[in-house]
């Protein structure tokens, strides 16, 4: 339902409402891109990173993900660019850079 709404807008009618407006797809907000709010993006220097995980722990948007190699990567689909990860990084491995229009 949510996908239909997010993609097709006006095709979504009252008939598509679930009983009691209950949302039965848990966590479907994950479909929403919040990365386009961003004016700055975090860049991680893997040389400096010691995989401590604080950027993951303190991210308000749950946008930092643990990857297979043990490093943490920011999912730019969600990252709003607040810069908290850069602030809490004990090794100063994360820098915030301006987003530029391409």
């Amino acid at each position: 339902m949510a996908e239909k709404r997010l993609r097709t807008g006006s095709d979504f009618t009252w008939r598509d409402m679930e009983v009691g407006n209950i949302v039965t797809e848990a966590g479907n907000a994950g479909l929403r891109r919040t990365g386009d709010w961003r004016s700055r993006r975090p860049i991680t220097d893997k040389e400096k990173c010691n995989k401590c995980g604080l950027c993951w722990l303190y991210c308000p948007d749950a946008a930092v993900k643990l990857s297979e190699d043990g490093y943490y990567e920011t999912d730019l689909f969600y990252c709003k660019g607040c810069g908290i990860c850069a602030k809490v990084c004990p090794r100063a491995a994360i820098t915030m850079v301006e987003e530029e229009e391409k």
């Binding site: 479907n28 907000a29 709010w37 303190y58 308000p60 749950a62 709003k80 908290i84």
Partner: peptide, 20 residues
């Protein structure tokens, strides 16, 4: 993550961090 990404809290909100 019991609270999915894609929420609309302000950038840098500590409330949603606490909630997460």
């Amino acid at each position: 993550e019991f609270l999915a990404e894609g929420h609309s809290f302000c950038t840098g909100c500590a409330e949603v961090l606490a909630l997460r």
